[in-house]
Amino acid sequence: MLKTEQAASLPAAQAETTPSRRHSGEWWIEQIIRGAGLSTIFIIGLIFLFLLREGLPAFVRISPLNLLGVRWYPIEELYGLLPLLVGSLLVTVGAVVIAVPLGLITAIYLGEIAPLWQRELLKPLIEVLAGIPSIVLGFLGWVALAPLVQQAGAPTGLTAFTGALILAYMSLPTIISISEDALYAVPKEYRDASLAIGATEWQTIWRVVVPAARSGIVIATVLGIGRAIGETMAVMMVTGNAANIPSLATGMFFQPVRTMTATIAAEMGEVAQGSLHYQALFAIGIVLFLLTFAINSLASMLIGGGKQQRSSQL
């Protein structure tokens, strides 16, 4: 109390130049929070350094032509990353194409159309879906989905498409709940305003609510992609693990592929530490890291644009 009074009695100019002493408890709390925050950055830095140390030599020791080749065959010292990249791309793009529209529509249904009792039933169920371990979904895909895909006419059930389906299913809860939050955050006034001048409910949802929730929906999509591109086990089980580039002509989604993550997981156990193969696997890790980083940066750029627009609303 006394301190405050003293501080208050100081002339204003002097009070500005000598910062008032803070309570020491507050100082400690601030330091702990700062430490926690900085440690995250520090750990990310360490991970990145480690990746670079283990993986960079591969880019020196393996000729660029070999790295860009179409064959991943470590026994013959062929380290072409292209089939793995294409594999990841196929599965991820497939998953996104399936999951984003489905997730968005589900979110719209949940948030805007469903009666209260359905909402209260479905929301916890979707959260349960998010909690299913990926290996269980992989198993499900292997036992139930793969035979269906094969029956549908694919040469084998274990294809990029099967992987995409499983991944889509896995990223759905994320996409649904984040999109739904974004829709929920759209001010009720927008809906009223639109309805009050005679727009239908569907017009209101499609032309006002969804555009207003755009940045949240973009976040949902990107997090969905992030989930899809990084997923390993389930994909490994259902994509057939053939490290070749599927031929474009004959339905490339319906052929076995191998993703970058699956390659690392499958081969890491068998390589000698420090060998060329080992370094090549870390090189894949670097590529994966850069890809994810690029996607996230793209997302924050898009979100940043959305934010600017939102702040101009005020």
């Binding site: 927008y190 009223d192 305003a193 639109s194 009050a196 001048i197 005679g198 006002v208 627009q309």
Partner: peptide
């Protein structure tokens, strides 16, 4: 609602 159009207490411009 087109015949009876409403304006609210808080101005509600749309984005």
């Amino acid at each position: 609602r087109r015949r009876l159009s409403m304006v609210f207490a808080i101005p509600t411009p749309l984005p």
